[in-house]
Design a protein around this nucleic acid. Sequence first.
DNA 1: ATGAAAGCGCTAACAC
DNA 2: GTGTTAGCGCTTTCAT
Lengths: 350, 350
Amino acid sequence: VPVTIHDVARRAKVSASTVSRALSASHHVRGTTRDRVLAAARELGYQPNPAAQSLITGKTGNIGIVVPDLSNPFYTGVLRGVQSRARAAGYAVFFADSEEDASAEEALVRSMARQVDGVIVCAPFASDSQLNALASVTSLTLLNRRLRGVPAVYMDSAGGMKQVIDHLAALGHHRCAYLNGPHNAWSNRERRRGLRAAAARRHLAFVEFGPFEPKFEGGVQAADLALASGVSAIIAYNDLMALGVLSRLADRQVAVPDEMSVVGFDNLLYAAVCAPPLTTVAMPMEAGGRAAVDLLLAGVGTTEDGNTAPSRELSTNLIVRATTAPAANRSPAASTAPPSGPGKGIDNDD
Amino acid sequence: VPVTIHDVARRAKVSASTVSRALSASHHVRGTTRDRVLAAARELGYQPNPAAQSLITGKTGNIGIVVPDLSNPFYTGVLRGVQSRARAAGYAVFFADSEEDASAEEALVRSMARQVDGVIVCAPFASDSQLNALASVTSLTLLNRRLRGVPAVYMDSAGGMKQVIDHLAALGHHRCAYLNGPHNAWSNRERRRGLRAAAARRHLAFVEFGPFEPKFEGGVQAADLALASGVSAIIAYNDLMALGVLSRLADRQVAVPDEMSVVGFDNLLYAAVCAPPLTTVAMPMEAGGRAAVDLLLAGVGTTEDGNTAPSRELSTNLIVRATTAPAANRSPAASTAPPSGPGKGIDNDD
DNA sequence: ATGAAAGCGCTAACAC
DNA sequence: GTGTTAGCGCTTTCAT
């Protein structure tokens, strides 16, 4: 039984416009009238039709979010942050999972575009030009990705990596492995960048492997390669991979952290409770989601041409737990190991 | 640059109504005309305004889902299933997390109601009357909850528990503990029901503890109680709790499965990769999400008064891994242990 | 097969 | 302050 604004108007003995004004809490409505309207609306259980409102105002009261893989707890963290902040701001949220497909990322944003005031995009795979095209279709905020002219919130992955290297160097490690996540993902590039810079400063050698799927299985695959390379520490692209590494290392009877140190990124819930608890770089997932909503909502209605798009950097920090320890005084096999594993080594910089 | 149906009409030299007909693929449009319209629409990049469509048709092309706790991977599984099936059917999905609050569950559904054609509700906490009220506001499909007149998909938790008990009994266990999840959650009640029935049939004694939060912490809290009760096996309400139990047992130097068997419910990804891998009852999370979408979409537009609401039961099955083993031949402390732990025992049936 | 007109429920000018 | 009017973009009778 859909009750319209006219039903309320009739019951309150005013016109529809007055009802509209009274409910928008906007000015120019006498107190007694407003009370009458509000009472009528409540009695009738009136709920404005959002389609009609949106048709005329052009705003929808909705935002969208698209993530590459919801089964990664990193993104469920982001989604929770987004949803709670959006709800607090009176917005409903459309959700979509692109399943790590660049064209799906684009298609999903497009399909949301007409029903939202903006969308938060976690799109590691879409190209810059795809994203630019999307930015002209609806208002975007990027998460962990930078693109000029588009607002973004990003987490200081490079800084996190610096903390990792400082930690490892202080523990006496001389040579470590980095297990790459998706090759072109901004987060992966940033982590590599931080790695190069910090490792050079600390005179710490490193080898790289990958890219791997940023999942548990990717980690187990990578573990053997890293192990063969004679390093004393392994830095994984993320916690899921680090967990895979831990699992494989246990299978292969390599003691962690005594024989091998392991570090992850994200600080998933599970990193804290696995055995041994994982040393990892905490990424502010929920805070990132909230910040993205704030940025998005702030930018809605703002024509940002010319102006620099606002963006927000969130800091990260290393959580030292039980998978890192001083380097073992084993035979320094470093010099005999190949510079890159037999697997898929990354050779090109970008 | 919003392009309307009139822009398309003008360019195709037809009326707006013809454009509408051509795009709805509906009848009575000459082939050549339709081609012209379609071409014009494509050239202009025309996208119908969903608000306008919805205003007139009454359908939105959206569905909603509300879950109690997205950080529980069970619900992210459901959400993934829902989203992928909805997308395949051309529907967009609104998402909301009620954070385990009954009134939020209701409020969220209400706030979605006007913008969706129906909503999938995972609401363990809302009361029957709240749910009935919601059912009159929009079309609902329940997940793992039953309410007469409301379509539902539910997973055979009791059957899963039967498999657990059969397994444990076959391994020679005589006495086990069940760690309750939320007291009134349908899934918890079903698991208890299955437990009572199967345990009686197998002449297997059991004690209950809880309710506990269905999370890791709940499991660690529960572990000590179960341990003190002299059982040889612990059945946790879900995997998250089972993982907590495992962690606490490890801390307390209790060998799993040699001294204590542990079983969970859900079969989260992590159950397969933790150490030791967890024996657990697989719940079809994504399939549940998909089935819920199917049911919801089938029921949209159907006035179901009188007719029995359709529902769908999904079967579950036990995945035996490494946390269950034959009962140890320890001193049978069973008779000395209290029937319920010193903690919060459940005493009332329902 | 196509066009004209009406109207979905609402808000925003514009009068008074 | 409040009512009247005019649409927002679209679909759907009803003519033709």
